[in-house]
Measured scan of single mutants.
Amino acid sequence: TCPLCKTELNIGSKDPPNFNTCTECKNQVCNLCGFNPTPHLTEIQEWLCLNCQTQRA
């Protein structure tokens, strides 16, 4: 489950994953609780959960 919103993560499912791993804290959170803060920078593959995003802001 997502630590932030308690959504079930579909780990091991044949569906596309509905979660990602935060590059900062390494927690697995669902796609609604994390995002790529710099989608225009292709050389930085970063994906932050809302916790890390808030701490950085």
Rank of each mutant, 00 (worst) to 15 (best):
C49H: 01
L9H: 05
N10A: 12
G12F: 05
N36G: 12
V29D: 04
P3C: 14
N51E: 08
P3D: 13
L9T: 09
T1M: 10
E46S: 07
L4F: 03
N31G: 12
C33Y: 00
T42S: 11
P37A: 10
N20A: 11
F19E: 06
V29P: 02
E8C: 02
C33N: 02
C52R: 01
L4N: 12
P17L: 08
Q53H: 07
T7H: 06
P3W: 00
C30I: 00
F19T: 10
L48N: 09
N27W: 15
S13H: 09
E46K: 09
V29S: 04
E46R: 08
T54G: 12
P17T: 03
K6R: 04
N31S: 13
T23L: 06
S13N: 07
T21V: 13
V29W: 07
N51Q: 08
C2P: 00
T54E: 15
T21A: 11
C5L: 00
L41D: 11
L4C: 10
Q45A: 08
N51Y: 05
N10T: 13
T54S: 11
L32I: 08
L9Y: 06
N36L: 10
F19M: 15
L48A: 09
P39K: 15
Q45K: 15
C25Q: 02
P3M: 09
N10W: 01
L48F: 13
E8N: 03
T7A: 09
P37S: 11
C5V: 00
N18T: 08
E46G: 10
T7F: 04
V29Y: 09
P16S: 09
L50T: 15
T42G: 14
W47A: 08
K14F: 03
K14C: 02
T42Y: 04
D15H: 05
N18Q: 09
P37C: 12
G12P: 12
L50E: 15
T23S: 11
L41P: 10
I44W: 04
E8K: 04
E8M: 11
N10Y: 03
K6N: 13
E46T: 08
C25E: 00
I11V: 10
E24A: 09
F35P: 15
W47S: 10
H40S: 15
T23E: 10
P37Y: 03
T21C: 12
P37G: 12
C30S: 03
C2M: 00
T7W: 01
E43C: 04
G12S: 10
C2G: 00
T7S: 08
Q45W: 15
S13F: 07
G12W: 04
P16Q: 08
C22W: 00
G12M: 12
K6I: 08
L9N: 06
C49N: 02
P17M: 03
L41W: 07
Q53L: 03
N27H: 10
I44N: 07
P16Y: 09
I11P: 14
I44G: 12
E8V: 04
L41K: 15
P17I: 03
L41E: 10
P16W: 02
F35G: 15
V29H: 08
C30G: 02
N27Y: 03
K6T: 08
L41I: 15
N27A: 14
P39W: 04
L41R: 15
T54V: 06
Q53W: 03
